[in-house]
Design a protein around this nucleic acid. Structure first.
Lengths: 140, 140
DNA sequence: TCCTAGCTTAGACTATGTCTAAACAAAGAA
DNA sequence: TTCTTTGTTTAGACATAGTCTAAGCTAGGA
């Protein structure tokens, strides 16, 4: 059983066949899919699965705090099943390739008190941008 | 004349009346507007201005590197005229209020070499999240 | 003046995501 | 078991954000 399904079950959240397929599709890959990409792949295992269920299920997993919603470009949201594991993202500006990365420190520690404007700051996520090895070659 | 218009002119970019109104609208505020919000305000000064021109112009200013495109939620892009001044963003998870903030360190310095996956990393932007003073009160 | 290149426009079109109403399914009560 | 209640899924309509297209407009140079 997938780790994500285990975490979801702890919330007393009913694991229907549709939800299981969606969770396993999400977790089975090491890239962060869009909702449409998840639908496309999940439908291979469950052809009658509807678009609305995929969107509903992803939104519920985000609300439960077990999946992160990424909005790294302005097009479509992407879903990251590793909500429990602090990490950031590195994106290639040439081809869009995305990697999960870990920084040496927590960015919240770098935000001085007088820059917090009275907010209670709970987290900081970093989006790194640059060129991947392939796209650096293509530049030259 | 606005500073943004000055910067844009340096690229040999024609400053038409429409482009001037859009640039001044963008720069005149201290919140980061969406394209629709800019259209709404710019139309007050130039009623015949079209939606397509606003989108085209914003995209061109981003391509010239003088305006930043922010995709902080999955809904609509926001535009930040301070592309030349390194800063990050702090967002209230209650009401969406956004502030520009400055961190004490450059996040790129905190990404170890073995986490770069061969990329040439050019920048890192941080999105801080928390609750603003008003929304902290509403929680209790 | 005319020509050309680039700019602007209205509206059609696309992509992404949400909502609605009806059908369906599962769990507990009788 | 059957009934009831509650939650889930579905198809398709709808909403929102943004892009594209074709036509007309404008400014500057020959």
């Amino acid at each position: 059983m997938s780790d994500l399904v285990t975490r979801l079950r702890r919330h007393n959240w009913r694991i229907t066949p549709q939800r299981r397929v969606i969770a396993e599709t999400l977790e089975g890959s090491h890239v962060h899919f869009t909702a449409e990409e998840i639908l496309e792949r999940a439908v291979e295992r469950m052809p009658e699965l509807s678009r609305a269920t995929v969107y509903n299920t992803l939104n519920e997993m985000v609300a439960l705090g077990e999946v992160l919603e990424l909005t790294l470009d302005g097009r479509s949201k992407r879903y990251d099943p590793n909500a429990d594991h602090e990490h950031h993202h590195l994106i290639c500006e040439g081809c869009g390739l995305m990697k999960d990365v870990h920084a040496m420190a927590d960015p919240v520690d770098w935000l001085p008190g007088d820059e917090r404007h009275g907010f209670s700051v709970t987290r900081g996520s970093i989006t790194y941008r640059g060129l991947c090895p392939d796209c650096q070659g293509a530049e030259a």
